[in-house]
Amino acid sequence: MKITWVRWLLGVFALVLVGCSTADNEMAGGNIQAINHTLSNINWLSVNGYRADGGGGRSCCIIMPTKWRPGLKAHIEWEVDTDPYAESPPLGTKEFRKFMKVHKAKYQHHRTIVNIPEWRGTESCDLKVHFFTCNQVKVTTSCWAPSSPNYPIRVPMGMKEPSVCPK
Rank of each mutant, 00 (worst) to 15 (best):
W5K: 00
R7A: 00
R7C: 04
R7I: 04
W8V: 00
L10Y: 01
L10R: 11
V12H: 11
V12S: 01
A14H: 06
L15M: 13
L15E: 13
L15Q: 09
V16C: 12
L17Y: 11
L17R: 15
L17H: 05
V18M: 05
G19H: 13
G19R: 02
C20F: 15
S21L: 09
T22Q: 15
A23M: 10
N25I: 01
N25C: 08
N25K: 14
N25R: 15
E26D: 15
E26S: 15
E26T: 12
A28W: 11
A28Q: 15
G30D: 11
N31L: 13
Q33V: 12
Q33A: 08
A34G: 14
A34H: 05
I35T: 13
N36W: 05
N36P: 06
N36Q: 13
H37Q: 11
L39C: 06
S40H: 08
W44L: 14
L45Q: 03
L45F: 12
L45M: 14
S46Y: 04
S46G: 07
V47Y: 02
N48R: 05
G49S: 00
Y50V: 03
A52K: 04
D53F: 13
D53K: 11
G54S: 00
G55I: 06
G55Q: 12
G56P: 13
G57K: 10
R58D: 03
S59I: 02
S59R: 11
I62H: 14
I63T: 08
I63C: 05
I63K: 02
P65R: 04
W68A: 02
R69C: 12
R69L: 06
R69I: 01
P70G: 04
L72E: 09
L72K: 10
A74D: 05
A74M: 07
A74V: 05
A74K: 07
H75S: 11
H75Y: 02
E77T: 03
W78F: 08
E79N: 12
V80N: 14
D81G: 12
T82W: 07
D83C: 02
P84H: 09
Y85E: 08
A86G: 08
E87S: 09
S88G: 14
S88N: 08
S88A: 10
P89N: 00
P90C: 03
G92W: 02
G92D: 04
T93W: 07
K94N: 14
E95W: 01
E95P: 04
F96T: 07
F96N: 12
F96M: 13
F96Y: 15
R97W: 14
K98C: 14
K98H: 12
F99E: 07
